[in-house]
Design a protein around this nucleic acid. Structure first.
Lengths: 98, 98
DNA sequence: AAGTTAACTTTGTTATACAAAGTTCTTTAA
DNA sequence: TTAAAGAACTTTGTATAACAAAGTTAACTT
C-alpha cells in the first residue's frame, strides 16, 4: 500500500487546489473573482470548475446582481470533507518517517 | 498576481511530492525502496526521478552494496530549499483569506 | 552458460492542460 | 434599433504529461 493512498488526484493540480482553498474560507465566490485570483483564462478556469463539479465537490448558483448575471461557486459538504481528508493526507506525507 | 505564484509546478504531482517528502527525512533512499513506497512501475518512477534530477532537486549516487548494484537518491541543497518554499506556499494557500 | 536483479530507456497510448476563438444571453450606449 | 460590451461558458485544436509494458545493460549468482 502506497504512501500516496489518501492523496486525492482531483486536488493534485494547483488550480483545483487553489479553488478549493479559497472556497474553504469563503462561503461562495464568483467566476470573475476566481479568474482574477488564479490568473488563468476563462476557458481553463471553466474546465477546472467542471472537474470539481463532476465530483460533486462544488456547487453552482446562478443569479443576477442588479441586472448583471452572476454565478457563485461554493464547496459542497462532500467537497469540504474530501478536501480536508486530502489536506490531512498531505500533512502526513510531508511529515512521514520511514 | 496569482495566489498560485509560489506553487512550484515540479512539486505539483503527487509522485514527485512523495519523493521529495521522504527525502526530507531520509538522507538517501534507493530505487527499490522508493518504488515500494510509491507503488508505481519502475519506468514511471524513473521518469519522475528524471524530472527532479533535471531541475537539480535530487542527486544520484551509484555504488555496490556487497556485490549488488545500488543507486541512492538524495535531495540537493537546492531541492530542499525549493521544496520548503513550496510547502510554505501550500500552507499560505490553504490558509488564505481574501 | 543460464538465470536473476537493479536500474534504467524506449515505445506507444491515453489523459490532461491550456489558449484561443466562438457562443449565448443580457445590459447599456448611440 | 442597432451596436457594443460583459459574464460565463463551450468548442476546437495542440502540446505536454503520465503511464504501462516491453526492451536493455551490467553485474552477480548458481
Amino acid at each position: 500500500m502506497s504512501i500516496l493512498k489518501n492523496i486525492n488526484k482531483v486536488f493534485d493540480h494547483r488550480v483545483r487546489l487553489g479553488i478549493m482553498s479559497v472556497l474553504m474560507t469563503n462561503d461562495s465566490l464568483d467566476f470573475i473573482t476566481l479568474k482574477k485570483l488564479l490568473d488563468i483564462t476563462d476557458g481553463n478556469l471553466a474546465s477546472h470548475i467542471k472537474a470539481l463539479e463532476k465530483e460533486n465537490y462544488i456547487k453552482i448558483r446562478k443569479s443576477f446582481i442588479g441586472r448583471k448575471p452572476n454565478t457563485q461557486y461554493s464547496s459542497t459538504h462532500l467537497g469540504t470533507l474530501e478536501f480536508k481528508k486530502h489536506l490531512t493526507a498531505l500533512e502526513h506525507l510531508i511529515n512521514i518517517k520511514i
